[in-house]
Design a protein around this nucleic acid. Structure first.
Lengths: 207, 207
DNA sequence: TAGATTGTTAATCGATTAACAATC
DNA sequence: TAGATTGTTAATCGATTAACAATC
């Protein structure tokens, strides 16, 4: 496999989810149907599926079950994926209890924080560990993804610690540009999202 | 103004934030310095700033205060921006208390939910209103941005209601493709982010 | 066969990067 | 002047879309 364009990879979860909205009485669907549900062009769907090696049948469409199976496999969701969340503030705790993660087979093995008042408690069944125990939590749990939900000042240090434990990927909610080698980092910048929306309030179409 | 490329708009919050990391003893900074902090190429910085009409001085750099002022204005953060959050679950409540929003001048005027047990309470000083009061909350508050933090099944209905109140933009945390006209929608898809990271666990560089 | 729909090519569009003349 | 750094052009790269021959 390999060398799937990033833009295509980013749409695979959308396609996988869109399959759930398909009428269940038919074995196949067309790229046009999938496109409607996903909110993209049908040519985009065909191109993306083709790029990841998924083929349909001309005149018929794509096999829904096959698509589901292969997309799940491509996204690595056919194995359990274990996740640790660093930062047990409001956001970290909300993420620990986020139904959407479990739904796709992600397991939150633990929260990590440096506040003694939080350590030892549990949030939605997830234990809160000391930051000094990060190594143990990640090592014991075969954790491959770390989520950073700390204040901005702590994020870089936490990222390096996560990297040192041998974690493979980081999802960063702190508004901090992380510098870590050999690790894939994705950033979710909540304030930026609002700011981008705010920009458009004054653009064309403003009151 | 107008017609700034979306990719450029999306980086303006990053530049604005990066200014805060600059040494405060100098009045100017170079595109190279800013690029380092923001984690992008210096040519990108120059191009972006040029595209939004911000100019530096050759051989000298950009005026830091001027940059901060103009970026703030461009992003519409020189006025208070009022926001309503629909959905007072874990995520909605975490967002209501999210420091990063207030920091940039966003005001959360209210949470909205349909759970009688939650209505009338407050979260981080933000009152929880009945969904049936959405109109009043948005209307009274001159709210321009709505955040959707509901379960997926409720998101489309909420989006339409928000549109009907005359809101201008929506930030959608529900894993739902929204169909609303004349409104800017941005999506933050937490499960997708993890799934994209999960995909790369098996790509090149996998153990 | 006729109708439907894929898979792929080529065209277009947009974003990034390199390079360098302009100029402080 | 010499050194630094912008602002912009052109080159490159990547993503999207249109179009249609292939084919079920």
């Amino acid at each position: 496999m390999a060398n799937i364009p990033p833009a295509t990879v980013a749409r695979l979860p959308l396609y996988l989810r869109s399959l759930a909205s398909l009428p269940s009485d038919r074995p196949t669907c067309s790229s046009e149907e999938l496109a409607q549900i996903a909110g993209v062009q049908s040519a985009q769907v065909r191109k993306d599926l083709s790029l990841v090696g998924l083929r349909g049948v001309r005149g018929v469409g794509y096999d829904i079950d096959g698509l589901r199976l292969q997309l799940t496999r491509l996204l690595g969701l056919d194995h359990e994926v274990r996740v640790v969340i660093v930062g047990a503030g409001n956001l970290g705790r909300a993420l620990a209890d986020f139904a959407g993660f479990r739904e796709w087979g992600f397991t939150i093995v633990g929260l990590v924080d440096n506040d003694p008042a939080k350590i030892g408690t549990t949030v939605a069944g997830v234990p809160v560990n000391a930051l000094s125990d990060l190594d143990r939590v990640v090592g014991d749990g075969e954790v491959s993804i770390g989520i950073i939900a700390t204040p901005p000042g702590a994020a870089q240090d936490v990222a390096q610690r996560l990297a040192d434990t041998g974690i493979r990927s980081i999802l960063n909610f702190a508004p901090t540009v992380l510098r870590v080698d050999g690790i894939e980092v994705r950033r979710v910048d909540l304030s930026s999202e609002l700011q981008i929306l705010a920009h458009h309030l004054h653009g064309p179409g403003a009151l």
